[in-house]
Design a protein around this nucleic acid. Structure first.
Lengths: 129, 129
DNA sequence: CGCATAATCAACCATTTGGTTGACGACGGG
DNA sequence: CCCGTCGTCAACCAAATGGTTGATTATGCG
């Protein structure tokens, strides 16, 4: 699994998002993290391990405790990905010449609408597994 | 499953992210979307359904075709969530008085480090399922 | 009408996921 | 030294995921 998939998957769980939220306020041990939840310590330990595999979190070593630290900078690429395609879609939506082109296309192919015009650009990123 | 989890989960798959990327360039039918992949049309249809359940995509109706349209605005809450906690972590990292407070705490509780000080704020968002 | 195309539905399968309980290893305090 | 705490490892389980094939439903074209 690629990095971006691991990160999105890690954040797709409400418990793990809550862990990230709490860790944004400061480091915490696994036991401290586990306390509020109605689930076993082992389950929380697994959640932390998922965050760690995604690079979202790291563990120090302090006696028996393993203080967990949020690596907030790895959130940036995720934001970047989201913003790239959100902006791309909105830019396209707002461009006037595009709208005019669609009108022209509607005249040329009245029954097959906009989407059916000759393909323009497909697969901006090669990302099939 | 909550909205944010559905969105993150939808984007955790490379094929689905590729679909979003391609749809950011314009609407496309399911068959058009399926063409580049080494998988069945039904599989792609399922992927589109996942995106639709997450609200990332909508389908129009045009004869037999179901042109798929990217609803880019639902990406915004995801970006907002990410930026909130990234910024919170970085702000904390940069605040000088925080650093001084940690030093003071280290003197008060020498063996139990920073993370073990009296809890400050836990659970900014109630999000355990 | 009858056929080809677009898409979904349905059943099935293998793998992953999120949780459990139980056992174990590492460490520090009395 | 021994006990209690912190954390992980291992095995297990139910449910969700990502794919398959086969059948079914709409729709437009000749």
């Amino acid at each position: 699994m690629d990095q971006l998939s691991r990160t999105f998957a890690a954040l797709a769980d409400p418990t793990r998002r809550d862990l990230v939220a709490r860790l944004s306020a400061g480091d915490a041990s696994v036991a401290e993290l586990a306390a509020p939840y109605a689930m076993s310590l082992q389950a929380v330990s697994k959640h932390v391990a998922v965050l760690e595999r995604a690079g979202l979190v790291s563990k120090r070593r302090d006696a028996q405790r393993r203080p967990v630290h949020l690596e907030a900078e790895v959130l940036a690429p995720v934001t970047d990905w989201l913003e790239l395609y959100r902006r791309r879609a909105e830019d396209r939506f707002q461009r006037l010449d595009e709208v005019l082109a669609e009108l022209a296309a509607d005249e040329a192919y009245p029954q097959t609408a906009v989407f059916a015009r000759p393909p323009r650009n497909t697969r901006p990123e090669g990302t099939n597994r």
